[in-house]
């Protein structure tokens, strides 16, 4: 194994992620865990595990990002926006538009051909248009994550979920179920509604720029498919999409 030079930590609202890289930026090891309330304690423990895995020495630099970035000890602290751009650029080697749907935030980041952030937008402070929105509603429908794709693909029609507010949408979905609407069709409509919200946040994407996707929600193929349908564009899901922020932090800290 090559030598670990830096570790990036992404302290998100739902998950805690860390990535160890070598001097070339190759990922040596990574950890993804559910976020615990005591961020510093979790970081101390999990970081020690990761360090042990890659036999990291004392000289290893730590980069931190994510909403809890200021609450962990690190050599470098950067926002998720810059880190996602760095991580994505490292994997793709080119500019484009990165859609990152996380638990609490949805970010659209325009990345230049040299990896710089050209512009970004983020959802408002409420959960509409985020992974949390999806999570809450799916839970309400009692649809476990591994069934989502199956149900989505089975649905011929879709029932749109028109409320943007998570709380209102939840009650809307409850009444749709009460009306006897097909769960599969609601699941499909739910993804399409979210996709349309994300697309309007993204605005006009120039036809010559590629679209990438990161964040935990990128693992949900129904969401990706809905976004593809909504934008009419190809979307490339980055490898280990939930690790991009941590990777960017590790790269920046090198």
């Amino acid at each position: 194994m090559t030598e670990c030079v830096s570790i990036g930590i992404d302290v998100g609202s739902t998950t805690w992620k860390a990535v160890a890289v070598d001097s070339k930026g190759n990922i040596l090891a990574s950890i993804v865990e559910e976020a615990e309330p005591l961020i510093d304690r979790q970081t101390e423990r999990a970081l020690a595990e990761l360090k042990a895995q890659v036999k990291a020495g004392d000289g290893v630099r730590i980069g931190a990002t994510g909403y809890g970035r200021k609450r962990v000890r690190a050599d470098l602290v950067l926002t998720e926006i810059t880190c996602h751009a760095r991580g994505a650029f490292h994997l793709t080697g080119k500019g484009g538009v990165l859609i990152d749907i996380g638990g609490q935030d949805t970010k659209i980041i325009k990345i230049g051909n040299n990896g710089d952030v050209l512009d970004f937008s983020m959802n408002d402070k409420c959960a509409a248009g985020t992974g949390r929105f999806l999570e809450v509603i799916l839970k309400r429908l009692r649809v476990p994550f591994d069934e989502v794709a199956l149900r989505f693909n089975k649905a011929v029609n879709s029932i749109p979920v028109s409320n943007t507010c998570t709380v209102f949408a939840e009650s809307e979905v409850v009444s749709l179920v009460a009306e006897g609407k097909e769960i599969d069709e609601i699941v499909k409509g739910l993804h399409q509604s979210l996709a349309s919200r994300v697309a309007s946040l993204a605005g006009d994407i120039p036809p010559d720029s590629e679209i990438f996707m990161s964040g935990g929600v990128a693992l949900n193929e129904s969401m990706v498919k809905s976004l593809v349908d909504r934008t009419g564009r190809r979307i490339r899901v980055l490898n280990s999409p939930q690790l991009i922020g941590a990777l960017g932090a590790a790269l920046a800290a090198r």
Partner: peptide, 8 residues
Amino acid sequence: RLEAFVEM
């Protein structure tokens, strides 16, 4: 957002 903007 503000911090990211400064970084950008």
